[in-house]
Amino acid sequence: MLYGTLFPSRLLLGTAQYPSPVVLRQAVEISEPSFLTVSLRRQAAGHNEIGGQAFWDLLSTLKIPFLPNTAGCHTPEEVWTTAQMAREVFETPWIKLELIGDDYTLQPDTLQMVGVAERLLRDGFNVLPYCTEDLVLCRRLVDIGCEAIMPWAAPIGTGRGALNPYALRLLRERLTVPMLIDAGIGKPSHACEVMEWGFDGVLLNTAVAKAADPTRLAAAFKKAIEAGREAFLGGAMIPRETAEASTPVVGTPFWHHGAP
């Protein structure tokens, strides 16, 4: 449930970097994501990217809600303008707020994102902020009205899985809003792990698009996310320091007092 809307899947899928539009379509059809992330770029540029009318035609046939991003924005003003353009083009109030604070790590600008998130919320956007696992930042985003947040697992495109499990698990314990892990997931086991911790969903792109077989990885991620969610709801056991036999000990044949 995000901003009052119930979604059928806990997977959100990016549309970039696939080997071909056909493979993108296959990955979408097999993983059945709740959102497809999309972006905006200058019309004359982007010939290395899937874009323009052909991309629009493909998107239109997939019938999955769009989640436009503000990727590449470095100032709150750029985010504000890009979000408004995205709302007009994609005809949606949803926006993945990306405000980059460091080009090397693509770390979000944690000092300026709260202000622009608040401005977008006031203007009617459903803001999904891409943020770090910083508890105070995430709490501020919730305080100003974000009904869901998207902390990173690791820097975008690294595929390293959760680099700071302690902080992410603490964040999950302290905040009750829906939280989607965005960025840094590389393998289905990474996605399963964060879902086991109680996160509400996972946003993927590179991990699927750059796999040797994106369609197969898309299917694997779907299963991993579902498995992790079930494990969280089922209440996985607490690890123990010492062995404890699972087979009953009482009645063991040949057993007797004084055995080593």
Partner: peptide
Amino acid sequence: LEIVQPVAGG
């Protein structure tokens, strides 16, 4: 003037 179009995104 900036004229932008839909493209793939993550």
